[in-house]
Simulated scan of single mutants.
Amino acid sequence: MLTLDKIYQASYVLKEVIRHTDLIYAPQINPDSQIYLKPENLQLTGSFKVRGAYYKISQLTDEEKAHGVIACSAGNHAQGVALGATKNGIKSLICLPAGAPISKVEATKKYGAEVCLVEGVYDDAYQKALQLKEEKGYTFVHPFDDENVIAGQGTIGLELLEELPDVDVVIVPVGGGGLISGVAFAIKSLKPNVKVYGVQASGAPSMLNSITNQKIERLNSVSTIADGIAVKEPGIHTYDICNKYVDGIVTVTDDEISTAILTLIEQQKLIAEGAGAVSVAAAMFNKVPVKGKKVICLVSGGNIDVTILSRVINRGLLKTGRSYTLTVELADRPGQLVGVTGIIARMGANVISVHHERAGSKDITGCYLQVVMETRNHEHIEKIRQELIREGYHVIS
């Protein structure tokens, strides 16, 4: 059984292993509340996962250690298990989805694990790991549905209450539910009045659906930039704990996640992966009641692939009105381009690229002009559009 004593024991075991991540005050995330960040993206291996993995491995018998461990993961749990196993001097084999970010695959190898890439998503890697466990006699380290793993993650809950004793709300990312189960159990056991909310990606709402319908439900598919929480089905233990201790679960879109990632980079100089930023997105877009409250957003990980990061930043720029593609229908005669770009310059926007297209216009003497601009916000974009219209230009979008 999961107990508070077990979480305290895990905290003692982890004391000499993990990095202490102090809260960061981030008032600009939501000006109507006092927002603090718990930056587990700065943790060893770049994620909270090392806590549960290391504690689970530390509790194995000598015989179990001799056989080695196996795990499956979208990436972060893999690194936690690899580090935990290596520090304990035992072998580790990690099954990862073939589509896992290259950075996570290479980092897992760097921490000393052998990697087995499996076609499909997390759940496919999970089935492969169970198969190899039976064949080779490994001990399976579940990424979330294991009470020792949950206890390790629960040490974050103890730290939050120690660092901000008068916290009102804690917002936690949810995939399979291991992190929020540990955090909610620890917090509710010590301070039942603190609200604990979970956040899932709208393209992978497995725990939300299960809690809503009061039974564990499996999604047919998942689709989100937050690969770390793209889980089709919650665990048995995690479902029960969430059902009992979590005050509510909400979802955020990929656009909202991208905006949160961009905000963390610009305002806090923090790199978060999609799964790590969902808690911040929930606070930014008022998905949970935070107005006038002291709130901690748990930034659970920072292992985002740099190739994805550039796309996410672009998506965040579009969502916040920092980038915009303007389309104008023009008469195909000299001076039109100068006129449009002159207005854009006068209004304080920066032109990134220009595309001139004759073929698409209904008018044989007309053309379309597409201008990609750097802008300040949505209000700035609207002012530019209105100024162009006032000057007699036909603005399409």
Score class of each variant (00 low, 15 high):
residue 248 G to F: 11
residue 290 V to Y: 04
residue 153 Q to R: 12
residue 5 D to Q: 14
residue 272 A to D: 02
residue 119 E to R: 14
residue 195 K to A: 15
residue 273 E to M: 08
residue 319 K to N: 09
residue 390 R to P: 01
residue 100 A to T: 12
residue 299 V to T: 06
residue 186 A to Y: 13
residue 27 P to T: 01
residue 114 E to Q: 13
residue 257 I to H: 11
residue 111 Y to F: 14
residue 239 Y to W: 12
residue 193 N to K: 14
residue 363 D to F: 10
residue 166 D to M: 13
residue 334 P to H: 10
residue 307 T to N: 14
residue 184 A to D: 06
residue 228 G to V: 01
residue 361 S to N: 13
residue 294 K to E: 10
residue 329 E to W: 00
residue 137 G to C: 12
residue 365 T to P: 03
residue 66 A to G: 04
residue 179 L to F: 10
residue 392 G to P: 15
residue 360 G to N: 11
residue 171 I to D: 00
residue 383 K to T: 08
residue 87 K to Y: 08
residue 65 K to I: 04
residue 45 T to S: 05
residue 292 G to V: 12
residue 358 R to W: 07
residue 193 N to Q: 15
residue 301 G to H: 02
residue 28 Q to E: 13
residue 390 R to D: 12
residue 250 V to M: 04
residue 93 L to Q: 00
residue 240 D to N: 15
residue 146 D to Q: 11
residue 397 S to N: 04
residue 248 G to K: 09
residue 173 P to V: 03
residue 196 V to L: 12
residue 90 I to S: 09
residue 252 V to I: 08
residue 354 V to L: 15
residue 395 V to N: 00
residue 137 G to M: 11
residue 213 N to A: 10
residue 164 L to I: 09
residue 29 I to A: 08
residue 130 L to S: 01
residue 9 Q to K: 14
residue 267 Q to K: 15
residue 16 E to S: 12
residue 144 F to K: 08
residue 273 E to P: 11
residue 385 R to F: 00
residue 271 I to P: 06
residue 3 T to W: 09
residue 304 I to M: 12
residue 4 L to C: 10
residue 234 P to L: 09
residue 227 D to N: 11
residue 230 A to I: 07
residue 256 E to H: 00
residue 4 L to F: 13
residue 255 D to S: 12
residue 227 D to R: 00
residue 352 I to E: 15
residue 369 L to Q: 05
residue 359 A to W: 14
residue 28 Q to I: 07
residue 65 K to A: 03
residue 206 S to I: 03
residue 355 H to T: 10
residue 320 T to N: 08
residue 20 H to M: 04
residue 109 K to E: 03
residue 286 N to K: 15
residue 380 H to E: 04
residue 134 E to D: 13
residue 50 V to Q: 03
residue 121 V to R: 06
residue 385 R to H: 06
residue 155 T to S: 05
